[in-house]
């Protein structure tokens, strides 16, 4: 196959209905692709290395539209489409702690046309706490470590607004200070559990579905603190009615140099989640390499990096092997804590 489709500028991205009109009503596309595949098989090996998608590439997002994962996936899709010479469409399959979307990709054809925009929940947390998980990490082939996301603690007015002050306040009022998270077993709940264990805090956790209610309760003063992703944290801080007191990353965010990280005061106290693209296992290495190249180029785009940083998201990059190693390190980091917490999905 050649790079010919590049001549036609692809439409940026379609949405979650991507499988409806075009593909089902006009299966011509895939039929047209068949002889092309035959041609590819007949070509010598170096030509195969130039794998190119023969139809639109789908990125399954296991969250509803509008959240950070979705926005990141859409920003990536926009940059990847011209590089791949095909549309990159977003398919939101939310629900059940990302299990539904992940399972769909684990079972998708390993032909390089389906990827998962995974977060730490899907492949770091769920495999460690899931008893009847319908997928295993081995069902996926890592493509690119897209981004790293530290969490931040935001507090309502009236609560000490420095990290040390806050921690002292929680210790002085055991069981009284409340913090919001996205439900037991969600990444921010587990990050909070890590902080509580490490700093010996007894705080009262409150589970929420989604961020909107948490933001509301924090701004209304019925919730003392939230431990959330940067997008949500920065949004509540922008309201002027709550303040971010610290982050859980390894270092300060370049755009927020005056906001400290736990790691500075309590070395080693780091809790990050991540975004990454993964294909079904057994996707041909040539396809993984091609997708990695396109995705890495997209993640290196300065506008994209800036948009992500606005939401407290640090764009990453690297090779599939780097991503594999990162996943292994993260699983190692969380396994002991999750065993102690004894949460099962």
């Amino acid at each position: 196959m050649s790079d010919a489709p590049l001549a036609r500028r692809p439409r940026p991205v379609a949405g979650s209905l991507q499988r409806t009109p075009e593909e089902t009503v006009r299966p011509v596309l895939s039929r047209r692709a068949l002889p092309a595949l035959g041609l590819a098989a007949a070509l010598p090996a170096p030509a195969l290395a130039q794998w190119n998608p023969s139809r639109p590439v789908t990125i399954v997002v296991p969250f509803p539209p509008g959240g950070s994962t979705d926005v990141t996936a859409r920003l990536m899709a926009e940059k990847m489409a011209p590089l791949l010479g095909q549309n990159v469409v977003i398919d939101n399959k939310p629900g059940a702690q990302t299990v539904i979307g992940a399972e769909a990709v684990a079972r998708a054809a390993p032909d390089g046309h389906t990827m998962l925009m995974s977060s730490g929940t899907t492949l770091t947390i769920n495999p460690l706490i899931g008893r009847n998980l319908p997928y295993r990490p081995a069902d996926f082939a890592p493509v690119l470590h897209v981004a790293t996301l530290p969490f931040c603690i935001a507090v309502r007015p009236g609560i000490p607004n420095t990290l040390e002050g806050f921690v002292a306040h929680v210790r002085a009022n055991p069981g009284k200070v409340t913090w919001g998270h996205n439900g037991r077993g969600s990444f921010n709940h587990i990050a909070g559990a890590l902080i509580a264990e490490r700093l010996n805090l007894d705080w009262q956790d409150v589970g929420y579905r989604g961020d909107a209610h948490q933001m509301n309760d924090l701004l209304a003063g019925t919730l003392d603190s939230i431990l959330v992703g940067g997008a949500t944290g920065l949004q509540v801080a922008r309201s002027g009615r709550a303040k971010i007191i610290g982050w859980t990353g390894e270092s300060r965010l370049p755009n927020l140099p005056d906001q400290p990280v736990f790691h500075e005061i309590w070395p080693g106290l780091v809790a990050i989640t991540w975004f990454g693209l993964l294909a079904p296992a057994r996707t041909p290495p040539a396809a993984v390499a091609r997708l990695n190249a396109a995705a890495a180029a997209a993640a290196a785009d300065p506008t994209l990096r800036e948009r992500l940083l606005d939401q407290g998201i640090l764009a990453a990059g690297g090779t599939p092997a780097d991503f594999q190693a990162f996943l292994a390190r993260e699983a190692e980091r969380w396994a002991p804590l999750l065993r102690r917490l004894d949460i099962t999905l």
Binding site: R11, P12, V13, A14, G15, S16, L17, P65, G66, R74, A77, E78, V89, I90, N92
Partner: peptide
């Protein structure tokens, strides 16, 4: 959600 992806650019 679908429209947003169309109106991207």
């Amino acid at each position: 959600a679908i429209l947003i992806s169309f109106t991207f650019t």
